[in-house]
Nucleic acid binder design. Sequence first.
DNA 1: TAGTCGCACAACCCGTTGTTGTGGCTCGCC
DNA 2: GGCGAGCCACAACAACGGGTTGTGCGACTA
Lengths: 309, 309
Amino acid sequence: MRTFVSVADTGQFQHTAAEMAITQQAVSKRIAKLEGDLGVRLFTRTARGTQLTIDGQVFLPHARELLRAEQRAVDSVRPGRRPLRIDVINRRTAPAALLRDFHRGYPDLQLDVLVLDDSGVDVAIAAVRSGSIDASFRAVTIPARRLPDDIKVMRVVDEPHQLLTGPAHKLATAPAVTPADLVGHRIWIPGILPGTEWATYYNDLAAEFGLAIDPIGPNFGTEHLLDVLADSATLASLVGEQTRLLWPTHYDLRRIPLYDPTPVYPHSLIWHRDNSHPALATLHHHLASIRPRRFDTGIWMPAWATRQA
Amino acid sequence: MRTFVSVADTGQFQHTAAEMAITQQAVSKRIAKLEGDLGVRLFTRTARGTQLTIDGQVFLPHARELLRAEQRAVDSVRPGRRPLRIDVINRRTAPAALLRDFHRGYPDLQLDVLVLDDSGVDVAIAAVRSGSIDASFRAVTIPARRLPDDIKVMRVVDEPHQLLTGPAHKLATAPAVTPADLVGHRIWIPGILPGTEWATYYNDLAAEFGLAIDPIGPNFGTEHLLDVLADSATLASLVGEQTRLLWPTHYDLRRIPLYDPTPVYPHSLIWHRDNSHPALATLHHHLASIRPRRFDTGIWMPAWATRQA
DNA sequence: TAGTCGCACAACCCGTTGTTGTGGCTCGCC
DNA sequence: GGCGAGCCACAACAACGGGTTGTGCGACTA
């Protein structure tokens, strides 16, 4: 592929051969093989070089893109100067949106967002300490005094929860509901694994208000959840206000605000004191520049979250 | 790469080996080589399979993207069902913008836009007839009666021209100018090759109003043109109203409307009568749905363009 | 018409990558 | 705790792909 691009650029097999430190015949073979595999002619051979066919002209940008993709792939794991690596709890909640904003603001910064699956905040902290990731958006369930010295934490955004129901649900027409209204209703939040801070949060929430939250159902994916909710009169779910969910329009799901109090989920950024990745500083700058919605009254969050300020 | 993705998905070397019809040892070697080349461990080997390391988790989406890019590259030249292939005269004028709109409207349609360089409308017509491209946006300088029967032409958009000057130019502060005002000024439009319909258009324009248009200067790229214009008191250029040009903000170039009459450039779509590419029909539908700006009075265009209606 | 330039074909050779065979490790079961 | 099952790694060997050298052919030029 690289050979093809080079020949397209130089217009001559010989130049490419010199450039790549191989013989002209080897270049000829490579191009012939590529043409054979694709089943089309890429160059017209003339007496003083080569010229791209129309197929070749169409193929060229794709070939370049392929090489760029390869470069990005290699760079993503290159020890030393690799892209900033940030873990999020999933790709739909507020921190993911935050990172999309960040990327929009600094499109030149290389960013790798990953989901460290099946892991709690302790795993994220370990990953940050080991240097394998640069930062993590998490709810920090651990008291500040028990955090390692080299780990820094900053509260970034509080995400209010809403009730998610299908049209047939008894609460579907309510303009807003309180946690007390949810007593006796089944709340289903599948895909939350025990040991993660999600589970801690919802367990605490359930205990506080006497709710029947079922966080450990089998997880067949978000589509399945929405599928079930759309048809159910008894089942509802809780979602963050900024959480993006896409469902077929005929599903007619509703998001109903919660109040008195509003449960909010506390997202923090975790990073290592000594991490000198330049993009990390930029991220801090960006997070400081946006004014996060913070709530003081009328909300609920677990005791471990309020203690953090 | 494919092997890596497969192992990441299945979690076992053996499954991948069966899937790819090779032995487990071969898979092991491939992964070991990839890890060696990258310089990082991608999997942690356990007694009952493998698990992605954090590096592996980061690398995985890049690997998938690489495979997708390869697929697109191969598809782009696959005889038979390949993406719709459309030629434009360059990537900045109105037809290019039109195609961006089209792509926004139908993001699932695969589209390959190319610039058949150094070629006039006759080359485009030949390419359309041979089937190597599906359509071309061109100014058709050939009388309708001399077009082959199997070639269809539709006038798509008329693009008014504007004067482009630097801040020091004598006409820079004029709110609008007429072609007559340009007599005696040097107009520079580099990169227009003789034989193309661009050259025909500007020659006709120069002849009509007695202008000193210099279309055949050496072409060092758009940046160079803007560079020179920014500092010149005597040189100006002509650009289409919808033509996208990006210049450094401190350049302070100006686009000045032309009137009495406004020279407009006629873009037509050329395609083959028998071309049954489904996306071509969609393109027609899209072009019909947008209401193109067409001008009747106060404009100028070459005789060969007015005759087409 | 001879010379030069540029790509293609043929023969050969070597290194990469596949295969077979085997060993070591971990986990679960009796 | 011993043993078998499952899974990956290492070693030796074989086959193929892709490189090299040598040569030929067609087109443009003097």
